[in-house]
């Protein structure tokens, strides 16, 4: 997977109309590859956080960060190092599971701390909040049963509560 080329960036932005377009447009225009992007409110009403998983095979992560900083609505950009962070993603997945196989699928769900969100005649809708890598394994194990549809939210990341202050959350203010 070449994991070393993938970086998780957390951009603190002003909660204003058009901010997401500006960030997304920047990635398109500069040819940066996004693996995933999640946006949501923060503890402050006037701030949002955009979490971007970026593939830096063609560009340096420094160049991505510098370009993000040029957007007036972007206040701060942090790289969130995987080893010091909790990374989570929500998966909603609808799996073929008739009466015969239902308990089998539910047992698997239990192993992954997934919840049954809805039950149909022939399908189960599961929800799971986990590390994205674990979600991938979960999906893989469910595949043989027949996946009807699956959606993921994109990852969000936060430094561990136990992470030493100031050491791991590296504010990427690139001075040239």
């Amino acid at each position: 997977m070449g994991a070393s080329n993938h970086h998780t960036l957390s951009a603190l932005v002003e909660n204003r109309p058009g901010v997401l377009s500006r960030v997304a447009g920047l990635f398109t225009r500069r040819g940066f590859n996004i693996d995933s992007l999640a946006v949501g409110p923060t503890e402050r009403a006037d701030r949002s956080v955009i979490t971007i998983r970026v593939d830096c095979t063609r560009h340096s992560v420094e160049q991505v960060v510098k370009q993000l900083y040029k957007l007036v609505d972007v206040i701060d950009v942090y790289e969130v190092p995987a080893e010091a962070a909790i990374e989570r993603e929500l998966l909603l997945i609808k799996v073929q599971a008739d009466a015969e196989r239902r308990s089998e699928v539910m047992k698997l769900a239990e192993l992954f701390d997934a919840r049954v969100a809805d039950v149909g005649q022939t399908t189960l809708l599961l929800e799971c909040v986990e590390h994205p890598d674990r979600l991938a394994s979960f999906e893989e194990l469910l595949a043989p049963y027949g996946i009807v549809e699956a959606i993921r939210t994109g990852r969000v990341a936060m430094l561990r509560a136990s992470a030493p202050e100031g050491e791991s959350k590296s504010r990427l203010r690139v001075m040239g």
């Binding site: 160049q63 510098k66 370009q67 900083y69 040029k70 001075m175 040239g176």
Partner: peptide, 21 residues
């Protein structure tokens, strides 16, 4: 050597040995 006002120009096309914003 690259002197500029815009950090994003440093090492964008050609990598700089010394840079100063």
């Amino acid at each position: 050597i690259h002197f500029d006002i815009d950090p994003a120009e440093i090492s964008k096309n050609r990598s700089a040995d010394v840079s100063l914003i």
